[in-house]
Amino acid sequence: MASAFDRIAEIIANTSDVPLENIKPESHVIEDLGIDSLDFLDIVFAIDKEFGIKVPVEAWTQEVNSGAAPAEQYFVMQNLAARIEELVAAKGG
Protein backbone atom coordinates (compact mmCIF):
# COMPACT_ATOMS: atom_id res chain seq x y z
CA MET A 1 0.00 0.00 0.00
CA ALA A 2 1.16 3.54 -0.71
CA SER A 3 2.60 5.51 2.19
CA ALA A 4 0.45 7.92 4.16
CA PHE A 5 2.39 10.76 2.53
CA ASP A 6 1.62 9.49 -0.99
CA ARG A 7 -2.06 8.95 -0.19
CA ILE A 8 -2.40 12.41 1.34
CA ALA A 9 -0.52 14.03 -1.55
CA GLU A 10 -2.89 12.34 -3.98
CA ILE A 11 -5.89 13.54 -2.02
CA ILE A 12 -4.56 17.11 -2.08
CA ALA A 13 -3.88 16.94 -5.82
CA ASN A 14 -7.37 15.56 -6.47
CA THR A 15 -9.09 18.05 -4.18
CA SER A 16 -7.24 21.23 -5.11
CA ASP A 17 -5.44 22.74 -8.07
CA VAL A 18 -2.02 21.75 -6.75
CA PRO A 19 -0.12 19.42 -9.12
CA LEU A 20 0.99 16.19 -7.46
CA GLU A 21 4.65 16.80 -8.36
CA ASN A 22 4.62 20.07 -6.40
CA ILE A 23 3.72 18.33 -3.15
CA LYS A 24 6.95 17.57 -1.30
CA PRO A 25 7.58 16.22 2.21
CA GLU A 26 8.78 19.66 3.26
CA SER A 27 5.80 21.51 1.73
CA HIS A 28 3.71 23.55 4.13
CA VAL A 29 0.12 22.81 3.18
CA ILE A 30 -1.04 26.40 3.61
CA GLU A 31 2.04 28.54 3.01
CA ASP A 32 3.67 26.54 0.18
CA LEU A 33 0.73 24.81 -1.47
CA GLY A 34 -1.70 27.71 -1.02
CA ILE A 35 -4.47 25.56 0.38
CA ASP A 36 -7.12 27.76 2.01
CA SER A 37 -9.32 26.80 4.92
CA LEU A 38 -12.23 25.69 2.73
CA ASP A 39 -10.06 23.45 0.57
CA PHE A 40 -8.36 22.17 3.69
CA LEU A 41 -11.72 21.02 5.07
CA ASP A 42 -12.36 19.15 1.82
CA ILE A 43 -8.94 17.54 2.18
CA VAL A 44 -9.60 16.61 5.80
CA PHE A 45 -12.97 15.11 4.82
CA ALA A 46 -11.21 13.00 2.20
CA ILE A 47 -8.46 12.00 4.67
CA ASP A 48 -11.08 11.04 7.27
CA LYS A 49 -12.76 8.80 4.71
CA GLU A 50 -9.54 7.37 3.26
CA PHE A 51 -8.03 6.44 6.62
CA GLY A 52 -11.19 5.84 8.64
CA ILE A 53 -10.22 8.42 11.24
CA LYS A 54 -11.33 11.81 12.49
CA VAL A 55 -8.52 14.30 12.04
CA PRO A 56 -8.72 16.58 15.11
CA VAL A 57 -8.36 19.80 13.16
CA GLU A 58 -10.00 21.94 15.82
CA ALA A 59 -7.62 20.71 18.53
CA TRP A 60 -4.62 21.20 16.24
CA THR A 61 -5.72 24.72 15.33
CA GLN A 62 -6.25 25.56 18.97
CA GLU A 63 -2.76 24.30 19.86
CA VAL A 64 -1.20 26.36 17.09
CA ASN A 65 -3.19 29.50 17.90
CA SER A 66 -2.34 29.26 21.59
CA GLY A 67 1.35 28.76 20.86
CA ALA A 68 1.36 25.27 22.37
CA ALA A 69 2.56 23.76 19.09
CA PRO A 70 4.24 25.13 15.97
CA ALA A 71 2.08 25.09 12.84
CA GLU A 72 4.75 23.00 11.12
CA GLN A 73 3.98 20.11 13.44
CA TYR A 74 0.64 19.62 11.72
CA PHE A 75 0.76 21.45 8.43
CA VAL A 76 4.08 20.44 6.85
CA MET A 77 3.39 17.43 4.67
CA GLN A 78 5.79 14.92 6.22
CA ASN A 79 4.58 15.87 9.71
CA LEU A 80 0.94 15.76 8.63
CA ALA A 81 1.54 12.27 7.26
CA ALA A 82 3.16 11.27 10.57
CA ARG A 83 0.20 12.64 12.53
CA ILE A 84 -2.19 10.69 10.31
CA GLU A 85 -0.18 7.51 10.82
CA GLU A 86 -0.35 8.08 14.58
CA LEU A 87 -4.12 8.50 14.40
CA VAL A 88 -4.47 5.33 12.35
CA ALA A 89 -2.26 3.43 14.79
CA ALA A 90 -4.24 4.79 17.74
CA LYS A 91 -7.48 3.45 16.37
CA GLY A 92 -5.92 0.05 15.89
CA GLY A 93 -5.65 0.27 12.12
Binding site: L41, V44, F45, P56, V57, E58
Partner: peptide, 9 residues
Protein backbone atom coordinates in the same frame (compact mmCIF):
# COMPACT_ATOMS: atom_id res chain seq x y z
CA UNK B 1 -22.69 11.39 5.89
CA UNK B 2 -19.73 12.33 8.08
CA UNK B 3 -18.98 14.20 11.24
CA UNK B 4 -15.47 15.59 11.33
CA UNK B 5 -13.63 17.95 13.63
CA UNK B 6 -15.24 21.35 13.13
CA UNK B 7 -17.24 20.28 10.12
CA UNK B 8 -19.96 17.86 9.10
CA UNK B 9 -21.37 16.53 5.84
Amino acid sequence: VHEGSGFAV
